[in-house]
Amino acid sequence: MPPAEIVAAAKRLHERMGKALLEEPALRLALEEYREAIRRTGDSMRACGVVAACAACAVHGPGSCCFQDIQHCYDPVHILINLLLGCEVPDMAEEFGECFFLGKAGCLLAARHAFCLNYLCPSLRESLDPDARMRLLSTVGEELDRGWKLELIIRRFISHFPG
């Protein structure tokens, strides 16, 4: 399914059941735990210089690791999670040839695919000391675990939602 269709499907899900989802106590708790895990990952990425290195590479270096095909890893539930987190998901890509979800200031999504979180290019991998890299990947792992738990709750909810 093309990314624009995935976004449209996610927005329909959000419109149809977003309020009901947010009324579920287990989902609200999982969403807040995921939001906090995302924040911790961001803090860790900033602390070890990943954010600055990636921004510099995108502006001055060989370019973005946010290749176009990664957008196909997302489905409507992944985008729905971003909508529930308050992200403004685009209806069309800003740049042709890049990931649909890549904006001028970086990724437009808060809830990102495992590849996007785990990938460290060779130069970035070399620049991080092994302990910092392990701490970062451990934090990323916690985020992915929280996201997976939230995704399961949402998929179960959708499968039992009337209509």
Score class of each variant (00 low, 15 high):
residue 155 R to P: 03
residue 90 P to Q: 06
residue 4 A to S: 11
residue 94 E to W: 09
residue 107 C to R: 04
residue 19 K to L: 10
residue 25 P to R: 15
residue 25 P to H: 12
residue 142 E to T: 15
residue 1 M to P: 07
residue 14 H to E: 07
residue 83 L to R: 04
residue 9 A to N: 08
residue 16 R to Q: 15
residue 16 R to A: 15
residue 53 A to G: 02
residue 135 R to C: 02
residue 94 E to Y: 12
residue 117 L to F: 03
residue 130 P to R: 11
residue 54 C to P: 02
residue 47 A to G: 06
residue 106 G to P: 04
residue 80 L to D: 01
residue 31 L to A: 03
residue 123 S to M: 14
residue 53 A to S: 08
residue 28 R to D: 02
residue 111 A to F: 12
residue 56 A to M: 07
residue 112 R to E: 02
residue 138 S to T: 15
residue 112 R to N: 02
residue 78 H to P: 00
residue 132 A to S: 15
residue 78 H to S: 11
residue 153 I to N: 01
residue 83 L to S: 03
residue 63 G to D: 04
residue 133 R to N: 04
residue 160 H to C: 11
residue 54 C to Q: 07
residue 128 L to Q: 08
residue 56 A to W: 10
residue 133 R to H: 09
residue 84 L to S: 02
residue 148 W to S: 11
residue 35 R to L: 04
residue 24 E to D: 13
residue 83 L to D: 03
residue 43 D to F: 10
residue 124 L to Y: 10
residue 155 R to E: 08
residue 78 H to I: 05
residue 148 W to E: 14
residue 37 A to T: 05
residue 60 H to Y: 14
residue 161 F to M: 03
residue 87 C to E: 13
residue 160 H to L: 14
residue 5 E to D: 14
residue 149 K to E: 08
residue 78 H to N: 13
residue 24 E to V: 11
residue 146 R to D: 05
residue 47 A to Q: 09
residue 135 R to P: 01
residue 98 E to P: 00
residue 9 A to V: 06
residue 55 A to W: 05
residue 134 M to R: 15
residue 76 P to M: 06
residue 95 E to V: 08
residue 132 A to F: 08
residue 9 A to E: 13
residue 46 R to N: 09
residue 20 A to V: 08
residue 111 A to L: 02
residue 65 C to Y: 06
residue 156 R to G: 07
residue 76 P to K: 05
residue 111 A to S: 12
residue 156 R to H: 11
residue 97 G to V: 06
residue 54 C to R: 08
residue 47 A to E: 13
